[in-house]
Design a protein around this nucleic acid. Sequence first.
DNA 1: AGTCGTGATCTGTGATCACATATTAACTCA
DNA 2: TGAGTTAATATGTGATCACAGATCACGACT
Lengths: 238, 238
Amino acid sequence: MEQTDTALTQMGQLERVTLGERAYLKLRQLIMSGKLAPNEKLSLRSVAEALGVSIMPVREAVTRLVAEGALSLLPNRAISVPLMTRAKFEELLRIRTEIEGFAAAEAAVHRTSRDLKLILDYDKDFRDAVGKGDSEVDSSLQLNKELHFAVYEAAGSPILVSIIEGLWLKVGPVINLDLRASQRLASGNAETHHARLVEAIINQDGNAARAAVVADIRSSGEFILGSNQLWTNLPEPA
Amino acid sequence: MEQTDTALTQMGQLERVTLGERAYLKLRQLIMSGKLAPNEKLSLRSVAEALGVSIMPVREAVTRLVAEGALSLLPNRAISVPLMTRAKFEELLRIRTEIEGFAAAEAAVHRTSRDLKLILDYDKDFRDAVGKGDSEVDSSLQLNKELHFAVYEAAGSPILVSIIEGLWLKVGPVINLDLRASQRLASGNAETHHARLVEAIINQDGNAARAAVVADIRSSGEFILGSNQLWTNLPEPA
DNA sequence: AGTCGTGATCTGTGATCACATATTAACTCA
DNA sequence: TGAGTTAATATGTGATCACAGATCACGACT
């Protein structure tokens, strides 16, 4: 079974992406970027038709997303984007500060120079996008996400990253729906927090990195808590 | 829409458990309790036959478990219980101490008297089961789990609990497979840590609760790291 | 008008079929 | 005896069918 290190052994397996996986990624992206509004309902068949596949792959994707809490399966057999309550949002905020703070601290300590370079790049891209103003809100939100995850990846713990992805998936719709409306108010703080975060990671200062991430999360969280009166009392849509 | 409070309004919805859900719970329990050994392979059709259903519910269950990392989908189209490496086990240990420690601290602060009563009950049951010796290893492991989760539930954060469930699901096979062999060595420490944990929760001392849980996790973790040479280098079975 | 039944339509769930691909068995040839 | 090849079996993935239950629209009756 042993082989000399030929080109064959290095070729790497060509990835098999099933339709279910692609449907999952597509829906996931839609949800996380806020393209699907909370309480929006969707059906297997309509999504399947939109994606040009049968309902089977969609079933698989929806099953996963429901298991992760990114979609909700109402007792009436209806699939919907779960609507956020103030209490749940605050719960997520508490958990995120703890876990993402931990990840940032680990990242600061364990980062490689490669990690650092990536983080610096994303930070620069983010500042550029924000500088361009409202025309780049979508991409600046995207870059904000990529910067955060570049940091979390640097912690060298895939499991931790996947946990955080799950949290962002839950909080994604509200964050993006809200911040897209008025990005400017929050982005000013974001740049400050990001600067502190990057500096902490450069200095490999775990506590400072944690503090910066916590402040960033709290800042955007409080902004949304203050600006959005919608989901405070919204049991049912009109 | 408003109704007087008649028997109809109190009846409560009768829960709808799909076959897929039941298959998921069954497999999940098997995995978490170590009944399925790491690297054990299983097929949709064989599981379906064992459960007396078609493969559809099994597909759904397996899909979820794979998404949670509790099962692994090999590139050869084979479903297997993922085998643990030393590095991954240590990674899980680090994450668990952080997250479960946080949950315990929150629990100590936010617990109600109802929560406390439940925790005390489970603690007593656990000590009883351990006292009965090796005949009760399975139930003492089960009670250990229930005690831990009674604590985590007391934090009042369902999302946090589900995250921890995911971690136990990943770490379950190894833990149970190993501890079942020689429960006695670890349980002595466990009782000590549990006692400290319970006391901290009584006193609503968050830091002490966190320290106790962290010590408990580290203790059992190091026991397994020391006793089990298996998965250090086990790329393939015979 | 307001309420209740009734039919049509749409929903998720489960079973079955179809298929490309892996795994294994048997076999051939050296 | 052993390597290479072929036939057979088993696998996950995807599509389609069947069905119970939910939703909605329309109409009848009070």
